[in-house]
Amino acid sequence: MGLVMPNPGTIIWMIIIFAIVLFLLKKFAWKPILNALKEREQSIANALNSAEEAKKEVAGLKADNEKIIAEARREKDAILKEAKELKDKIVAEAKEKAAQEAQKTIDEARQQIDAEKTAAINTIKKQVAELSVMIAEKVIRKELAEKGEQEKMVDGLIDDIKLN
């Protein structure tokens, strides 16, 4: 099996047709193909530039987000600190008010105890006075049961009155 060689006339025609096809491709297709390749290359370069710009923009946004987050944390800390101070102030005021109320209650209780003590002492004095009068009345009745004793006592009282 050997390789068959084409006819030399056919080779010439193939070269001529190849040259015509090459000329036609160069005249009509080569420039549009090159232009399309250049456009494709330009669009890829533009896409890469856009991607680089987007990357830079994302980095900038990320930095802005970190600043915003840091600021939010500072604000949160400030709000928590203020809330704690307000809570402490309210608790201190409540304790002070409770202490004042307790002192007021104690003072009122002392006043009430003093008033009740005075009333009790006055009641006891009154009862002692009544008892004393009753005892004196009974003693005097017993001693004055006799007429001579009554006259003697009246004379003694008159003498005491004259002396005063």
Rank of each mutant, 00 (worst) to 15 (best):
M14R: 15
A145D: 09
G2V: 08
I106Y: 00
K55Y: 07
K89P: 03
M14Y: 14
V133D: 12
K117E: 01
I11N: 12
D64N: 11
A47S: 14
F28R: 05
K81S: 06
K31W: 08
K162Y: 13
L157Y: 04
L163H: 05
A47Y: 13
I11K: 11
I17R: 01
L34A: 11
I68M: 02
G9T: 13
N65E: 09
Q103Y: 04
E108R: 05
A115G: 00
L163D: 10
N7K: 14
A145C: 08
A36W: 14
E143D: 10
V91A: 09
E39Q: 12
K104Y: 00
A54T: 02
A70E: 01
E53V: 05
A119H: 05
K81Q: 05
R74T: 06
A145Q: 09
E101N: 01
A99S: 05
I33H: 09
E85A: 04
K31R: 08
M1H: 02
Q42K: 10
K87C: 07
I15Q: 09
A54V: 01
A47C: 08
P6V: 02
D159N: 14
M14N: 15
E82I: 08
G60M: 10
K89G: 08
D155P: 00
A145K: 08
K147S: 15
D114E: 03
K56W: 01
P8D: 13
L25Q: 12
I79A: 07
I135G: 07
N65C: 04
E75D: 11
E41N: 11
E116D: 01
N7S: 11
D88T: 04
I161S: 09
T10W: 10
M153I: 06
K67S: 07
V154R: 04
